[in-house]
Simulated assay, not measured.
Amino acid sequence: MATPIHPFEALRPERVVAAIESLGFEVLGEPFALNSYENRVYAWRDDTQQRWVAKFYRPERWNSAQILEEHAFLAELDRNDVKVGAAWSDDDGKTLHDFEGFRFTLFRHVIGQAPELDNPAHLFALGELLGRMHSVAGRIAFIDRPSMQPEAIMTSSRERVLASNWMTLRQRQAYQRISAALLELIPLPNWPSSHMIRVHGDCHIGNMLGRDDEFALVDFDDCCMAPAVQDIWMLLTAQNEQEWRQQLAEVLEGYEQYGEFPRSELKWIEALRTLRLMRHSAWLVDRWDDPAFPVAFPWVASEGYWDQHIRTLEQQRHALERPPWLA
């Protein structure tokens, strides 16, 4: 039996160009594929040398209402002077477009580089950006986008990894044991509703671009309802208490130019880190039928990857039992 063709294999450069040009643009040269695996994202220039990004959504991940709610959030942030990569709309106000079975959106290119998390000025600026964003995000709730629910995410991730054939019997037994222990240690099945706001959801440095101390947020593909700390914790990368507290102080000083940060949420950082670790491995397993994944992540097929993942989860067990530096 022939192996099914993944939908993204049909997204050839000529189809990308044809999709963009169907909206009335002229594309100069061939679009350049950016490092995006969940979706397919291309940088390109129009005939005026304006730089753009075209994002083609993974089929069957988000429904159109969820994507449009992301776009509406971006437009709301843009109107309130929060620096984001907002979606382009045509003369009819449409931001989500269809071409030969693919849904796609155009964004103006955001110029800049990733921040340096050991630079206090950058941390302060990122705190300002997130504080301004959350001051707008807290006004209303998402209706169609998901809510981050710790127990559901961990349970689903655990089941998907265990249903795969990647691990040896020894590794499977170790993963079953440690993932069950982590599930027992998460602080609560769902975050309290009073702490849930609209968040970016994936605030790593690759999604923050700028120059000097001016940054913008890009790629809201994971935006959801979650605690505010979800957009903060990945900025805290220091490996000792003094430097960690210095990073946190700079971020919160910037953040609190626009509103008080709920410090009680800091105790959830290790739970959030655990969710991300478990969900990432489940994501790799889920997406292995996409030809881009074996090329980009070949180590997933090795025993060494799963041994390291299990060791990392063991470290998280200790962190959940004794959250560092948060007392």
Rank of each mutant, 00 (worst) to 15 (best):
M1G: 15
P4M: 05
P7Y: 10
A10C: 02
E14M: 02
E21M: 05
L23K: 09
F25T: 05
F25C: 07
E26H: 12
F32I: 13
F32A: 12
N35K: 14
Y37E: 05
W44G: 02
R51S: 12
K55V: 07
E60G: 00
N63D: 15
S64D: 15
E69W: 11
L74D: 03
W88G: 04
D98T: 11
R103P: 01
T105W: 08
R108T: 08
G112E: 04
Q113N: 12
D118M: 09
D118P: 00
N119P: 00
A121H: 13
L130H: 04
R132S: 10
G138K: 14
I153P: 01
S164H: 04
L169Q: 13
R170V: 07
Q171E: 13
R172L: 04
Q173C: 01
S179K: 07
A181R: 15
W191V: 11
S194W: 00
H200K: 05
D202P: 06
G206W: 01
N207W: 00
G210Y: 03
D212W: 05
A226H: 03
A226I: 05
P227E: 01
A228P: 02
A228G: 02
W233G: 01
L235G: 05
N240A: 00
E243T: 12
R245H: 15
L248E: 11
A249Q: 12
E250M: 11
F261N: 09
P262V: 03
E265K: 01
I269A: 04
E270S: 05
A271T: 15
L275W: 07
L277D: 09
L284V: 13
V285D: 09
A292I: 04
P294A: 06
V295E: 15
V295W: 00
V295K: 13
W299Q: 15
L313C: 06
L313D: 03
Q315Y: 03
L320V: 08
